[in-house]
Simulated assay, not measured.
Amino acid sequence: MLSPSLSRVSSLATFLFAHRRHALAAILCLASLPALADVTLQRGPPPPRFEDPHTAPKGEFWVPGYWQWKDGRYDWVDGHFEAKRPGMRYTPPHWEETGAHEWTLRDGKWDATGWGPGTVHEIRAPKSSPATR
C-alpha cells in the first residue's frame, strides 16, 4: 500500500497524464504572461509617454503605461483598459525611489478599497447602526 503522500503524487501524475492537453495549455498561458518582479536600478526611468485613452467603456478604467526594464534597457508598456472590481482598488505598476539614486519597479496589484493615489474607488452608503433602523 502506498503512503498518503506517495498516493497524492501518483494521483496528480495520473491526472496530469490524462489531462495533458489541458495541463500543457495552462502552462503555455502562464508562460506567456509578463513576469513582473521587483527590479531595482541605479537610475530612474524616462518620463512617461503621453497616452490618450479617450473615454473608458462602462465598467472599465484606464491603467497608464509604464517603463519596464527589459534586455538591459527601458522598454515602454502601453496603457490599457481594466475591468473594475467592486470593493477593490488597483495600483498600477510604477517606479518608486527606494534609496539614493535607486529606483524599484513595483508590480501592479489589486487591494481592498482604500483611499490613495492610483486607485479606483467604490463609493457605498454607510451601514446604518442598529439604533437608526
Score class of each variant (00 low, 15 high):
residue 67 W to R: 00
residue 29 C to M: 11
residue 116 G to D: 11
residue 111 D to E: 12
residue 5 S to C: 00
residue 130 P to K: 14
residue 94 H to Q: 12
residue 27 I to C: 10
residue 28 L to R: 08
residue 8 R to F: 01
residue 114 G to K: 14
residue 52 D to M: 13
residue 93 P to W: 01
residue 124 R to D: 04
residue 99 G to M: 05
residue 2 L to C: 04
residue 64 P to Q: 04
residue 82 E to M: 08
residue 20 R to E: 14
residue 113 T to Y: 08
residue 28 L to K: 02
residue 125 A to W: 07
residue 95 W to C: 02
residue 27 I to R: 09
residue 36 L to V: 08
residue 132 T to W: 13
residue 117 P to C: 11
residue 69 W to R: 04
residue 93 P to A: 05
residue 121 H to L: 12
residue 82 E to F: 04
residue 80 H to G: 09
residue 31 A to N: 05
residue 52 D to R: 14
residue 108 G to H: 06
residue 76 W to R: 05
residue 104 T to V: 10
residue 40 T to W: 03
residue 117 P to G: 10
residue 45 P to C: 04
residue 59 G to L: 01
residue 35 A to M: 15
residue 49 R to V: 15
residue 9 V to F: 01
residue 42 Q to E: 11
residue 7 S to W: 00
residue 99 G to R: 03
residue 33 L to S: 12
residue 5 S to D: 04
residue 60 E to K: 08
residue 61 F to T: 05
residue 84 K to H: 03
residue 7 S to I: 00
residue 125 A to I: 02
residue 3 S to E: 04
residue 42 Q to H: 14
residue 56 A to N: 01
residue 17 F to S: 13
residue 100 A to N: 13
residue 11 S to H: 10
residue 97 E to S: 06
residue 127 K to N: 08
residue 16 L to A: 14
residue 116 G to K: 06
residue 18 A to G: 15
residue 67 W to G: 00
residue 68 Q to F: 10
residue 116 G to Y: 10
residue 25 A to S: 09
residue 132 T to C: 13
residue 78 D to N: 11
residue 116 G to H: 10
residue 36 L to Q: 14
residue 27 I to A: 11
residue 83 A to T: 07
residue 35 A to S: 11
residue 22 H to C: 13
residue 133 R to M: 14
residue 82 E to P: 00
residue 26 A to L: 07
residue 113 T to G: 10
residue 44 G to N: 08
residue 114 G to W: 15
residue 32 S to C: 11
residue 98 T to F: 09
residue 59 G to H: 02
residue 112 A to S: 12
residue 51 E to M: 11
residue 122 E to T: 09
residue 43 R to M: 13
residue 25 A to H: 13
residue 112 A to M: 08
residue 101 H to V: 07
residue 34 P to A: 06
residue 79 G to A: 03
residue 123 I to C: 09
residue 72 G to W: 14
residue 67 W to A: 00
residue 105 L to V: 04
residue 115 W to C: 14
residue 126 P to W: 02
residue 94 H to G: 00
residue 128 S to K: 15
residue 94 H to L: 05
residue 47 P to Y: 11
residue 116 G to T: 05
residue 93 P to Y: 01
residue 30 L to Y: 10
residue 131 A to M: 14
residue 125 A to G: 01
residue 19 H to P: 09
residue 125 A to R: 12
residue 133 R to V: 15
residue 58 K to Q: 07
residue 23 A to G: 07
residue 14 T to M: 13
residue 34 P to W: 06
residue 2 L to D: 02
residue 67 W to N: 00
residue 10 S to R: 01
residue 109 K to V: 07
residue 89 R to N: 01
residue 48 P to W: 03
residue 79 G to N: 08
residue 108 G to M: 08
residue 13 A to W: 07
residue 101 H to I: 10
residue 33 L to A: 12
residue 52 D to W: 10
residue 109 K to Q: 14
residue 100 A to S: 12
residue 56 A to M: 04
residue 44 G to T: 09
residue 120 V to Y: 05
residue 105 L to D: 02
residue 111 D to W: 06
residue 126 P to A: 03
residue 41 L to Y: 05
residue 49 R to M: 12
residue 113 T to R: 13
residue 53 P to Q: 09
residue 10 S to N: 06
residue 50 F to A: 15
residue 82 E to I: 02
residue 9 V to H: 06
residue 100 A to C: 12
